[in-house]
Design a protein around this nucleic acid. Structure first.
Lengths: 334, 334
DNA sequence: CTGAAAGCGCTTACAG
DNA sequence: CTGAAAGCGCTTACAG
């Protein structure tokens, strides 16, 4: 078929390639009739611009990149969809890169594939993140706290979310809670745990080490450790905080399988508010972290940094308590 | 900082840019010492190739594109992850594009951003799909049946999956089943329904129109229509086939909320085998469609078509019955 | 308002 | 084994 280039259009339309380029890009300098005529020819020839030719010279690609370690996880799909629509609004495309280290993000930026990037990947180590920071290219981190001229972070206020859960338990009169931590080294896991523990401590409640389980943010893993805990015969906690919904679910299943009732014997809470929460039995109380806002804010901020309208900032998004059956002692009495 | 190009490396290393290019690309013609020296210089200067410069001239980008309408949906994340790793194996990158029409895929191929693409987007209409077909560029469709020299399809054998469910119901002695269809026009919804209905018909079972509900592949929607159905006071079906797991879940919730028991009063089955199935109450019987295989096969086939080693084919993947509590009448008796 | 020309950063025949 | 040169398809000052 032979690729159609602006040269072909120029020849066909009897104008120069500069004029074609200007017409195609809507540069206002072109006479409207000329422009329309050229556009018609381009259309007729099924012209499709070569990204590489364009971007090689142009300063901007009009593409934003989202870099993630994996697409799995409770809220990723929604986040990406929201980001996509926010990009559309601003005249950008969004492309998603799966990657396991910071090289790929750096390559894409420096290789002029994207004008800026949003990075969600716990697997980028701190050194890698710092390297990106030093680049001073427009970047938004959504799972770590970094900031510079061109770099922003939009994260959950996970410390506060942990506090919120603690206070909810305190209101319920809980004296002996259990904590299930998430992926080691993960920002949200650490902060949620810290907020939870510190707020409880203010109330004079200190959780013994054997009442802090490591659930890896994962249902199966949490089921295992919870099950093992229950086998020891130690006294049941009154309440369990799973630092994400998946681990809360694992804990509930282990409790059920050991003959305990939730919320009758133990109340349980998670974080995230994944769709599943409403379909479980009992429905799961949780913290809605507001990732929709995270997605749109990430793109908005990125665009502003690209345009030089704003410099880097750190935003912390407040979660919201969603009470359902799993923390409602009265539920089983119905 | 000023972008480092092969010119800089050439100057620094005291060689020509051709030699730098050859060294960087591992062209064997370069003397090993020269190559190593150049690589060292490139490394020292933090050289990162410009994608646009490279791809403009090169025939191949070594990037595969995955085009989807949305990242939501039960198995998308797993599919993408699997495809990513398969790409890595073959020396390709994977980038994901969210898009609502076939233009974007066409642009990306013809705009030389990707060497080939996998398309999962029911929203590409048949005309759009045909346009892609005519391009004769390496493409794999994973939700429609198309085939040509460079175009393959790797789909679920959804007709057969429908038959499998029908036969499972027949074995259970079901005489009055209900069907919940999915997204209108969706290949899998149509085929699953058709297989289900035709197999039942062979058994002399014909489902009346008011026992075929439209659930849009979606829990909330299905809950609504099921609820409405139950309000009519019509006799309960003995079994319900939700053409995906999400709709089966919606039906179960509506039944429960109306005081019925699953599987006691009605047995229910879905398709997909999403993670949630195991955490529901009752756990959900379903068809495991084998999308892991779909992901890796899609990439493998695409690479082979790109390399000209194979021409287009159509593969249908067989699903596998996974029986859990929701179709096990004895379950409630325990 | 339009066109001739340079050049973006690479790759790739081709000479040597 | 290495280098000089052309060219990929565009954009962008600059002249006119």
């Amino acid at each position: 078929m032979g690729k159609v280039t602006i040269k072909d259009i120029a020849r066909e339309a009897g104008v120069s390639i500069s004029t074609v380029s200007n017409a195609l890009n809507g540069v206002s300098v072109v006479k409207p009739e000329t422009r329309d005529y050229i556009l018609g020819v381009a259309d007729r020839l099924n012209y499709i611009p070569d990204f590489n030719g364009r971007n090689l010279k142009a300063k901007s690609t009009k593409v934003l990149g989202l870099f993630v370690t994996s697409l799995k996880g409770p809220y990723f799909a929604t986040l990406a969809d929201i980001m996509f629509w926010e990009c559309v609004k601003h005249g950008y495309e969004l492309t998603i890169f799966i990657t396991w280290n910071e090289r790929s993000a750096i390559n894409s930026i420096l290789g002029k594939r994207v004008d800026g990037c949003v990075i969600l990947s716990s697997d980028v180590d701190d050194e890698g993140a710092k390297r990106i920071l030093e680049l001073e290219y427009p970047t938004v981190f959504i799972d770590r706290e970094l900031k510079s001229e061109k770099v922003s972070s939009i994260i959950f206020d996970s410390y506060r979310d942990g506090v919120t859960v603690a206070e909810h338990f305190i209101r319920k009169g809980v004296k002996k809670p259990m904590l299930i931590t998430g992926v080691r080294g993960n920002y949200d896991s650490k902060e949620r745990s810290r907020g939870f523990l510190e707020r409880l401590e203010k109330e004079g409640i200190v959780i013994p080490d054997d009442y802090i389980l490591d659930g890896e943010f994962n249902t199966d893993e949490t089921y295992e450790v919870m099950n093992k805990f229950l086998q020891t015969g130690k006294p049941l906690p009154e309440a369990i905080f799973g630092t994400n919904d998946l681990s809360a679910i694992g804990a509930i299943n282990a409790l059920k399988d050991n003959g305990y009732s939730v919320p009758g014997d133990v109340i349980v809470m998670g974080v995230d508010d994944i769709d599943m929460c409403e379909y479980l039995n009992p429905t799961l109380s949780t913290i809605r972290t507001g990732f929709e806002k995270q997605g749109s804010l990430a793109v908005k901020k990125l665009v502003k940094m690209i345009n030089g309208e704003e410099t880097g900032d750190i935003y912390k998004l407040h979660g919201q308590l969603v009470e359902r059956e799993s923390t409602n002692k009265d539920y089983n009495k119905l």
